[in-house]
Design a protein around this nucleic acid. Structure first.
Lengths: 193, 193
DNA sequence: GCAAAAAACTAAGTGTATTAGGATAAAAAC
DNA sequence: GTTTTTATCCTAATACACTTAGTTTTTTGC
């Protein structure tokens, strides 16, 4: 029998495709092996275990999200940058729900520190530097916006917003504008030091 | 051999204990059966399947969270109520991390509609009624605060805030105060109609 | 062509979930 | 208090997913 031509890269690639198609929860080695027409145990020549593969998919998802965010905020500042940053993340979550789940997969300390996750955090800080916030307030603002983004997307995707009158999109716009106004207000105090 | 004395209620009770001890992800029928010194298959006389049990734990978690929230906001209004509502949820998540996970377990449409989840949402709307917001704005505010709460707690618990300078608690206070101020501002417009 | 390396396989063990059917302890009916 | 019935719990078997160990077989490099 000819060989399937597996490699770590091809496995990761297929894992990403599977995640996009069926969600991160559906990602498992058995399904992957079936896709390649190969026995399950054969995958272990290229991957340490399931979690190794999942971590790799998570890192890739973070990288793609970071790319979108970086591109979105490039050349923008203030309110414009905040909206671009936020919309990029929400778009990513809606277009690539599986990868969005993957991006939330818990990673080990060291791995997380070298992941594209820090690039996403850095982008947020850059946005708020353009609001003329001091260092501490950049962090506070990043956490405030990041919390809202994550929570909103999770609730929206879980259908929590589907059964009350105003559209989720309206609440999104309302929330973003409120955060923009609130955080704008921080700048005055910061510049007074 | 004497009987173990299983029942649906005792199983659910044990499942909750297991969830509190080891987290919602660690909840499974096999572990539960071991705890009762009983064979795995025996549980099926009392529970339809794993998901039946998980849903039951989720409903219980929602009920307990709703109880805490209701008690926290009782007799309060405005900023006071908002803080009580928010702190109740964050406290619950920090004290009962397993149950907090469980409360986020996806439920079917009809089940969710009759769960204590609606009580939590109703409590939030009550808080914002005391801000003198109209109906639509009560929903927007509920979504804004709910998103922030959920996102913040998830990020805090995943360690995302552990490696930047200001304490997570400071950001929490900052975020809450900002939301309070922002949403307070909505009231004027609403009363002008 | 042959030896070494790598790819894929077989085999075996572990853990969880689930169904079907049987044994029996406990409860209900008489 | 026996008998009948019910419900509890068990054994057995199946289905998947993950993992390790050891073996065959294809490539590749000399």
């Amino acid at each position: 029998m000819p060989r399937a031509g597996l490699s770590r890269e091809r496995l990761i690639e297929a894992a990403i495709a599977l995640t996009e198609a069926d969600g991160f929860v559906a990602l498992n080695l058995a399904a992957l092996a079936r896709g390649f027409g190969v026995k399950l145990a054969s995958l272990y020549a290229h991957v340490r275990n399931v979690d190794d593969l999942k971590a790799e998919v998570a890192l890739n998802a973070l990288r793609r999200l970071a790319d979108m965010v970086d591109e979105a905020i490039a050349g923008r500042a203030g309110r414009d940058a905040l909206y671009a940053y936020a919309e990029a993340q929400r778009d990513f979550a809606l277009v690539h729900p599986g990868l969005f789940e993957a991006a939330r997969h818990p990673l080990s300390e060291e791995i997380a520190m070298q992941s594209a996750g820090v690039r996403i955090a850095r982008a947020s800080r850059a946005v708020f530097r353009s609001y003329a916030l001091d260092d501490a307030d950049q962090v506070h603002a990043t956490r405030l916006l990041g919390s809202f983004l994550l929570g909103f997307v999770l609730l929206e995707r879980s259908g929590s917003f589907a059964h009350s009158a105003p559209e989720a999109a309206d609440s999104w716009a309302r929330g973003l504008e409120s955060l923009h106004m609130a955080i704008s207000g921080w700048a005055e105090k910061d510049s007074k030091q």
